[in-house]
Amino acid sequence: MRAEHHDPDCVFCGVEAGTQPARVVATTPDTLTFLPLNPVHPGHVLVAPSRHVADIWDLDEATAAGVGKAVLRAAHAVRAVHRPEGLNVIQSSGAVATQSVFHLHVHVVPRFTGDRMPRLWPEPAETDADRLDDSARRLRAALDAPGKPFLRGEGPFLQHE
């Protein structure tokens, strides 16, 4: 991996470079799969791009494809080795979403009845149909936009409510 694709202050870049300790379980030219320092339980792995990518908004399609393939391979390996009852695939972008290492990574977490993982989804709540319709309309427009300006952080789709 070329040095210009690493962040010298990033712990996951250090794992890729071999300067940070890790239990690496797989590598590809584009990805690294390894155990986190504090896994939920055995079988919990992280899949990260080899080059520094801060979050999902910094991710290009080719790297996304490589990460997606590595996640799928990891999910099948976790299933074969640990026989979980279920599986969570979790990617968090931004501190408010609980991202704590700002190098994109995907958690592949085997799940078992009564395990120590918390519930991930809140209880159902009332929704505003007009707001949902507006959201669906704006998302369709963003996804249909020529040149996909939202991929470059431009355009009228960056409104936050």
Rank of each mutant, 00 (worst) to 15 (best):
N38V: 09
P146C: 11
G153R: 15
V109W: 02
D7C: 01
A70C: 00
P49Y: 07
E85T: 11
H6V: 08
G94K: 01
N38C: 08
E154S: 12
Q99K: 12
L151V: 10
P124G: 10
A62I: 10
L46S: 01
G114S: 13
H82M: 11
E126D: 11
P149F: 08
R152L: 13
F150A: 08
A17Q: 15
H76L: 06
P42T: 05
R79Y: 03
V109F: 03
L72Y: 06
F102G: 03
A62W: 08
D134G: 15
V89L: 14
S93A: 14
P36L: 00
L32M: 13
A80H: 14
A80F: 03
D130G: 14
L143A: 12
V96Y: 03
M117P: 00
G147H: 00
D9R: 11
D144T: 10
E4N: 09
P156G: 09
T27I: 01
D134Q: 13
P124L: 07
H107M: 11
K69C: 10
T33N: 00
G86I: 01
T27N: 04
K69S: 13
G155H: 05
V108F: 05
H41M: 13
E4T: 05
E4G: 06
E123K: 15
D30S: 06
P110C: 06
H76C: 04
G18S: 01
D60R: 12
R73W: 07
A54V: 10
A62T: 15
M1D: 04
E16V: 15
V101K: 05
D115A: 03
Q20Y: 07
A54E: 12
A136N: 07
V40F: 01
V11C: 01
R119G: 00
H5A: 10
V71N: 02
L87Y: 09
M117R: 13
E85P: 04
P156K: 09
H103L: 02
V101G: 07
A80S: 13
D55A: 15
A74D: 05
P110Q: 04
F112W: 04
A129P: 15
H41G: 07
A77C: 04
V47W: 02
V108P: 05
A70I: 12
L139K: 00
P110R: 10
P124M: 08
A145N: 01
H6L: 08
S100A: 11
H5L: 07
V40K: 00
I90H: 10
A65H: 15
P84N: 08
A141T: 14
V11D: 03
L132T: 15
I56L: 13
S93C: 03
K69I: 10
A3H: 00
T28H: 11
R2K: 07
D55F: 13
A142D: 10
D115W: 06
C13R: 13
G68N: 10
D133E: 12
D55G: 15
T127Q: 09
E85V: 05
A77T: 06
L59H: 00
T33H: 02
L59W: 04
P39E: 09
F157S: 09
H82P: 00
M117V: 14
G147F: 09
V89Y: 03
H76R: 13
R51G: 02
A65W: 06
P156N: 08
S135C: 06
H105Y: 08
T127C: 01
A80Y: 00
R2A: 14
